Simulated scan of single mutants.
Amino acid sequence: MENMQFAEELVREFLLFRGFTNTLQAFEAELSTDIGKGFQVDKIMDLIFSVYVPRFHADKLVGLLGFFRQCFSSLSDSVLAATLSKLEVSILRYYVVFAVQSGRREKVAEFFAAYGNDLLSQSGQDWTPWFAILYMKNPSFDPQFRVYFSKEWYEGLRLSVRNFFSEIFNGAHILFGWT
Protein backbone atom coordinates (compact mmCIF):
# COMPACT_ATOMS: atom_id res chain seq x y z
CA MET A 1 0.00 0.00 0.00
CA GLU A 2 3.03 2.23 -0.23
CA ASN A 3 1.85 3.15 -3.73
CA MET A 4 -1.43 4.43 -2.31
CA GLN A 5 0.36 6.55 0.30
CA PHE A 6 2.65 7.88 -2.42
CA ALA A 7 -0.38 8.74 -4.55
CA GLU A 8 -2.04 10.55 -1.63
CA GLU A 9 1.12 12.61 -1.12
CA LEU A 10 1.20 13.49 -4.82
CA VAL A 11 -2.40 14.65 -4.67
CA ARG A 12 -1.67 16.75 -1.58
CA GLU A 13 1.38 18.34 -3.24
CA PHE A 14 -0.57 19.09 -6.40
CA LEU A 15 -3.45 20.67 -4.49
CA LEU A 16 -1.04 22.79 -2.44
CA PHE A 17 0.95 23.78 -5.52
CA ARG A 18 -2.21 24.88 -7.31
CA GLY A 19 -3.52 26.68 -4.22
CA PHE A 20 -6.62 24.50 -3.93
CA THR A 21 -6.75 24.75 -0.14
CA ASN A 22 -10.50 24.10 0.13
CA THR A 23 -10.13 21.04 -2.06
CA LEU A 24 -7.18 19.89 0.06
CA GLN A 25 -9.28 20.25 3.20
CA ALA A 26 -12.09 18.26 1.58
CA PHE A 27 -9.57 15.61 0.48
CA GLU A 28 -8.18 15.32 4.03
CA ALA A 29 -11.71 15.10 5.45
CA GLU A 30 -12.58 12.32 3.01
CA LEU A 31 -9.42 10.41 3.90
CA SER A 32 -10.21 10.63 7.60
CA THR A 33 -13.59 8.96 7.07
CA ASP A 34 -12.26 6.30 4.70
CA ILE A 35 -13.96 3.13 5.94
CA GLY A 36 -11.43 0.91 4.19
CA LYS A 37 -8.56 2.88 5.78
CA GLY A 38 -6.76 3.01 2.45
CA PHE A 39 -6.55 -0.77 2.58
CA GLN A 40 -3.76 -0.53 5.16
CA VAL A 41 -3.73 -3.70 7.22
CA ASP A 42 -2.50 -2.13 10.48
CA LYS A 43 -5.19 0.56 10.38
CA ILE A 44 -7.91 -2.00 9.69
CA MET A 45 -6.64 -4.24 12.49
CA ASP A 46 -6.69 -1.27 14.89
CA LEU A 47 -10.17 -0.32 13.77
CA ILE A 48 -11.53 -3.80 14.42
CA PHE A 49 -9.62 -4.87 17.54
CA SER A 50 -8.81 -1.54 19.20
CA VAL A 51 -11.80 0.62 18.35
CA TYR A 52 -15.00 -1.09 17.18
CA VAL A 53 -14.96 -4.16 19.44
CA PRO A 54 -13.69 -2.59 22.70
CA ARG A 55 -16.00 0.41 22.29
CA PHE A 56 -18.94 -1.83 21.37
CA HIS A 57 -19.57 -0.21 17.99
CA ALA A 58 -21.34 -3.24 16.55
CA ASP A 59 -23.00 -1.17 13.83
CA LYS A 60 -19.66 0.12 12.57
CA LEU A 61 -18.07 -3.33 12.83
CA VAL A 62 -20.86 -4.94 10.83
CA GLY A 63 -20.68 -2.06 8.34
CA LEU A 64 -16.93 -2.48 7.90
CA LEU A 65 -17.24 -6.22 7.37
CA GLY A 66 -20.09 -5.64 4.90
CA PHE A 67 -17.93 -3.11 3.08
CA PHE A 68 -15.16 -5.67 2.63
CA ARG A 69 -17.66 -8.36 1.62
CA GLN A 70 -18.98 -6.00 -1.05
CA CYS A 71 -15.47 -4.98 -2.18
CA PHE A 72 -14.42 -8.56 -2.60
CA SER A 73 -17.72 -10.02 -3.78
CA SER A 74 -16.30 -10.30 -7.26
CA LEU A 75 -13.34 -12.37 -6.13
CA SER A 76 -13.00 -15.16 -8.61
CA ASP A 77 -11.20 -17.22 -6.00
CA SER A 78 -13.94 -19.02 -4.07
CA VAL A 79 -11.42 -19.99 -1.37
CA LEU A 80 -10.78 -16.31 -0.59
CA ALA A 81 -14.50 -15.54 -0.52
CA ALA A 82 -15.12 -18.49 1.83
CA THR A 83 -12.22 -17.39 4.03
CA LEU A 84 -13.58 -13.86 4.26
CA SER A 85 -16.97 -15.26 5.27
CA LYS A 86 -15.43 -17.43 8.01
CA LEU A 87 -13.35 -14.53 9.32
CA GLU A 88 -16.43 -12.32 9.43
CA VAL A 89 -18.24 -14.92 11.55
CA SER A 90 -15.24 -15.25 13.86
CA ILE A 91 -14.88 -11.49 14.29
CA LEU A 92 -18.57 -11.18 15.18
CA ARG A 93 -18.24 -14.06 17.63
CA TYR A 94 -15.25 -12.31 19.15
CA TYR A 95 -17.44 -9.21 19.61
CA VAL A 96 -19.92 -11.31 21.59
CA VAL A 97 -17.17 -12.95 23.66
CA PHE A 98 -15.50 -9.62 24.38
CA ALA A 99 -18.81 -8.14 25.55
CA VAL A 100 -19.43 -11.12 27.86
CA GLN A 101 -15.87 -10.95 29.23
CA SER A 102 -16.32 -7.22 29.83
CA GLY A 103 -19.53 -7.77 31.77
CA ARG A 104 -21.54 -5.99 29.08
CA ARG A 105 -24.20 -8.58 28.34
CA GLU A 106 -26.58 -5.79 27.37
CA LYS A 107 -24.31 -5.20 24.37
CA VAL A 108 -24.73 -8.85 23.41
CA ALA A 109 -28.50 -8.46 23.68
CA GLU A 110 -28.37 -5.31 21.53
CA PHE A 111 -26.16 -7.09 18.99
CA PHE A 112 -28.53 -10.05 18.67
CA ALA A 113 -31.58 -7.75 18.55
CA ALA A 114 -30.04 -5.79 15.68
CA TYR A 115 -28.37 -8.59 13.71
CA GLY A 116 -29.84 -11.86 15.00
CA ASN A 117 -32.13 -12.51 12.04
CA ASP A 118 -29.29 -11.93 9.57
CA LEU A 119 -26.99 -14.23 11.54
CA LEU A 120 -29.58 -17.00 11.70
CA SER A 121 -30.21 -16.79 7.96
CA GLN A 122 -26.54 -17.32 7.09
CA SER A 123 -26.01 -20.76 5.69
CA GLY A 124 -23.20 -22.90 6.99
CA GLN A 125 -22.67 -20.95 10.22
CA ASP A 126 -24.85 -22.05 13.11
CA TRP A 127 -25.49 -19.08 15.35
CA THR A 128 -28.41 -20.68 17.20
CA PRO A 129 -26.38 -21.81 20.26
CA TRP A 130 -24.88 -18.34 20.56
CA PHE A 131 -28.23 -16.86 21.54
CA ALA A 132 -28.05 -18.91 24.76
CA ILE A 133 -24.80 -17.26 25.81
CA LEU A 134 -26.76 -14.43 27.41
CA TYR A 135 -28.38 -16.82 29.83
CA MET A 136 -25.30 -18.79 30.83
CA LYS A 137 -23.63 -18.01 34.11
CA ASN A 138 -20.11 -18.90 32.90
CA PRO A 139 -20.09 -19.48 29.14
CA SER A 140 -16.28 -19.65 29.21
CA PHE A 141 -16.61 -23.04 30.96
CA ASP A 142 -19.16 -24.42 28.52
CA PRO A 143 -17.55 -26.94 26.14
CA GLN A 144 -19.26 -25.33 23.14
CA PHE A 145 -17.86 -21.85 23.88
CA ARG A 146 -14.69 -22.50 25.88
CA VAL A 147 -12.36 -22.23 22.88
CA TYR A 148 -13.70 -18.77 21.98
CA PHE A 149 -12.73 -17.46 25.42
CA SER A 150 -9.14 -18.65 25.15
CA LYS A 151 -6.19 -16.36 24.53
CA GLU A 152 -4.97 -18.78 21.86
CA TRP A 153 -8.20 -18.48 19.85
CA TYR A 154 -8.06 -14.67 20.03
CA GLU A 155 -4.41 -14.59 18.93
CA GLY A 156 -5.18 -17.03 16.12
CA LEU A 157 -8.07 -14.85 15.00
CA ARG A 158 -5.91 -11.72 14.93
CA LEU A 159 -3.20 -13.52 13.00
CA SER A 160 -5.71 -14.96 10.52
CA VAL A 161 -7.34 -11.57 9.93
CA ARG A 162 -3.95 -9.90 9.49
CA ASN A 163 -2.73 -12.60 7.10
CA PHE A 164 -5.93 -12.51 5.06
CA PHE A 165 -5.94 -8.75 4.60
CA SER A 166 -2.20 -8.71 3.94
CA GLU A 167 -2.65 -11.31 1.22
CA ILE A 168 -5.63 -9.52 -0.32
CA PHE A 169 -4.12 -6.04 -0.18
CA ASN A 170 -0.70 -7.10 -1.38
CA GLY A 171 -2.53 -8.27 -4.48
CA ALA A 172 -4.86 -5.25 -4.49
CA HIS A 173 -3.05 -3.63 -7.39
CA ILE A 174 -4.09 -6.66 -9.43
CA LEU A 175 -7.64 -6.81 -8.05
CA PHE A 176 -8.32 -3.13 -8.49
CA GLY A 177 -6.03 -2.36 -11.43
CA TRP A 178 -3.61 -0.30 -9.29
CA THR A 179 0.02 -0.16 -10.26
Rank of each mutant, 00 (worst) to 15 (best):
F49A: 03
F49E: 07
V51K: 10
Y52Q: 03
Y52C: 04
Y52E: 06
Y52W: 11
V53L: 03
V53T: 09
V53G: 02
P54T: 03
P54S: 03
P54C: 09
P54D: 01
P54M: 13
P54R: 02
R55L: 11
R55P: 00
H57A: 03
H57W: 07
H57M: 10
H57V: 02
A58C: 08
D59G: 12
D59N: 10
D59P: 01
K60A: 12
V62N: 07
V62A: 08
V62H: 12
L64C: 05
L65I: 04
L65S: 04
G66C: 05
G66Q: 04
F67T: 03
F67C: 11
F68M: 13
F68H: 13
F68G: 01
F68S: 03
F68Q: 05
R69N: 13
Q70A: 14
Q70D: 06
Q70H: 12
C71M: 13
C71H: 11
C71Q: 14
C71L: 15
F72Q: 02
F72C: 02
F72K: 04
S73M: 07
S74A: 15
S74N: 15
S74L: 13
D77L: 08
L80Y: 12
L80I: 04
L80N: 10
A81Y: 14
A81S: 09
A82E: 04
T83M: 07
T83L: 10
L84H: 14
L84Y: 15
L84V: 05
L87Y: 04
L87E: 01
L87W: 13
L87G: 06
E88C: 08
E88R: 10
V89S: 11
S90T: 04
R93W: 06
R93K: 12
Y94S: 05
Y94F: 15
Y94M: 04
Y94T: 03
Y94A: 09
Y94N: 04
Y95R: 06
Y95C: 10
Y95T: 03
